[in-house]
Design a protein around this nucleic acid. Structure first.
Length: 270
DNA sequence: ATGGTGGCGCGGCCA
């Protein structure tokens, strides 16, 4: 069972790349962030033609999340409890025996901004919700664009980024509090190539210069962590023409009995 | 160098 997360920075622009990537990386579940589409404009038919069910929560211009899955999603939620927020950043669903929470955590802009205070408040509410979800669902996955690089190894230049948004102490502590609830960072279960990042600024040729951060994460409950056999970041799509500024993260779990096999598409090896 | 690029949508916000 493979599950992936990808901030696509406009699904209108990136849909062909998403479909191409799925052809070569046939995951069971793909969580998207920053679709930037209202629900009426979501390309549901194209996604379904590719063999996936899909649920989504979008808005105009900003944010927007979606979950593509081979098995149909149930019990969909689109908000954190106690939060009446027009920003579409949350999509929770049950897929097979798995409870999935796809998040686009606020960016925070800069540590002295109102957006940063919104981010920290958002993280507190997320923590409360995740604590509750972990009690309800032994097989729980929290994944998405966290806009937090948790450790020094996740930052190309930790000294440069010290105290800055995406790597501030308060954000990193909030990330550690999520982990302390009983989650695990699947990426760090395995030895990884140095300087593996998931996001590179479009400006200043950051990707070519390997000036990135690892801010997209796949976290899971202990029961799933034991079953996790790979967790990687596929940096290839960042090399493509007109790419997203994020690369997809992919985790694989050994137990797959509760996940229906994906239907092979025309022209594809079965 | 307080910039740079990209998406949305057509001026300025957001990342």
């Amino acid at each position: 069972m493979k599950i992936a997360s990808w901030n696509v920075n406009s699904l209108r622009v990136r849909l062909p790349q998403v479909l191409d990537w799925l052809q070569s990386h046939p995951v069971d579940i793909l969580c998207l962030q920053e679709t930037k589409l209202v629900d009426d404009e979501f390309p549901a038919a194209a996604v379904e033609e590719a063999g996936y069910h899909v649920v989504y929560a979008g808005q105009k211009t900003y944010n927007g999340v979606a979950i593509l899955s081979t098995q149909e999603a149930a019990d969909v939620v689109t908000d954190l409890p106690s939060m009446d927020d027009p920003q579409r950043r949350v999509l929770g669903a049950t897929i097979g025996k798995l409870r999935v929470l796809n998040v686009y955590i606020p960016n925070g802009q800069s540590v002295d901004s109102e957006k940063y205070r919104y981010k920290m408040d958002w993280l507190q509410r997320l923590q409360d919700y995740v604590a509750q979800q972990l009690r309800l669902y032994p097989q729980f996955i929290l994944l998405g664009d966290f806009n937090i690089a948790p450790e020094e190894a996740d930052v190309h230049d930790p000294e440069l980024w010290a105290g800055k948004v995406l790597f501030s102490d308060a954000e990193r502590q909030a990330f550690r509090r999520l982990i302390a609830l009983g989650l695990h960072d699947t990426f760090r279960k395995f030895s990884q190539p140095e300087n593996t990042f998931s996001w590179w600024d479009y400006r200043a040729a950051a990707f070519r210069r390997k000036l990135g951060l690892r801010i997209d994460h796949i976290l899971c409950s202990t029961a799933l962590y034991e079953q996790c056999v790979t967790s990687t970041i596929d940096q290839d799509p960042r090399k493509w023409e007109r790419p997203s500024d994020h690369a997809p993260a992919v985790a694989e779990f050994a137990s797959s009995s509760d996940i229906a096999p994906r239907i092979p598409q025309a022209g594809e090896e079965s």
